[in-house]
Design a protein around this nucleic acid. Structure first.
Lengths: 186, 186
DNA sequence: CGTATTCGGCTAATAGTATTAGCCTTTGAG
DNA sequence: CTCAAAGGCTAATACTATTAGCCGAATACG
């Protein structure tokens, strides 16, 4: 191997920094090259193209989120696990709003594994509710939709009124819990 | 006035067609110009720039969604109104997935009015639940997050498993209903 | 050691998009 | 009929992405 310098991971690191500081639209090869102190075409030695960089960045974010989510669920169960998962999810998004928005939701082969991991964690958080088979899938979808919708809207600044967002989120959590209880009892 | 030909509205129409057919990333001034049979710079006579076109397109979509939502809520109340609102919302997003994804959630002055209208409609759909003041705001936020999250994920094809999406959405609706009942009783 | 290979940078060139400036024709108002 | 302005056009500039091909340095190895 030649010089250490850049690497695909290092390029993704710089990409994440740009996303954090200037938003997902600012993630551009020339911006990354600028930060790396390198000419733009040099990046192609590490990354296939801009589209792939976006996917790699997105995959990294999904991985971080999965880490947070898994940490939250570990050692807890029932309502407590669910609350911890939801809080961890939201707080990650709030800590890194641009990063969160840079996550690609359309399925890609490159992030399929991490995506499955994330779904598995959500599923695990719901274990105590006694949902079997299909019911569990529906529940995961609803929970994911609720968390994702809230996180995105909050990250975008779409909730403009002064009311406390923590309280709004607490209500969302109560909705999910009561809905899951009802679903588990059928 | 000179020739009829183009107009800001016509430009937005073409933009919507492009969004529908090729996705929001394909919304480009040169693409619009191509469809309009006009040179790209000519569009600047009707629209300030690409950013403004995006906002105008987004505003149009929000307006359509508000139309659908208002239609759904009119003449209904309680669970029925809520179900109709949720179904209308999702079905709009399912009918026009790209369009739905092109909606800008970050608040812009140009779409503030339509956005407020939309929030007002959601609020109206919740009227029967007896939520007062802040509680109503929290409820609107949760409902919005749930609908938006589900719509976005479905539009992105993020729900990959075979389980029926209608059933998943029905569960989401039950979650919301039970959560609102609980919230209204406090 | 010395040398061949390859890694990882560079420059040059092409292509697509946004945007501005300034021209020119048609049209509608008077 | 005239003329001002609306609305189109071309030319030019500035990015950005991407490809091709060059070249030096580090590495592997005979």
């Amino acid at each position: 191997m030649a010089r250490a310098a850049l690497s695909p991971d290092a390029v993704v690191d710089l990409g994440l920094r740009i996303v954090d500081e200037e938003g997902p639209e600012a993630l551009t090869l020339s911006a990354v090259a600028g930060r790396a102190g390198v000419a733009t075409p040099s990046l192609y030695k590490h990354v296939r193209n801009l589209a792939e960089l976006r996917v790699l960045v997105s995959g990294r974010v999904m991985g971080e989120l999965a880490e947070v989510a898994s940490e939250a669920v570990l050692g807890r169960s029932g309502d407590e696990a669910l609350r911890a998962l939801m809080d961890g999810w939201r707080s990650y998004a709030a800590r890194h709003p641009h990063r969160y928005s840079a996550m690609i939701q359309s399925p890609r082969p490159e992030t399929a594994e991490t995506g499955d991991r994330l779904v598995g964690i959500i599923l695990a958080a719901l274990r105590a509710y006694g949902l079997e088979g299909q019911a569990a899938i529906h529940a995961v979808r609803c929970l994911r939709a609720a968390m994702h919708g809230f996180a995105l809207l909050e990250a975008a600044g779409a909730f403009q009124l002064a009311e406390d967002l923590d309280e709004s989120y607490a209500l969302l959590a109560r909705m999910v819990v009561s809905g899951l209880r009802a679903a588990g009892e059928r």
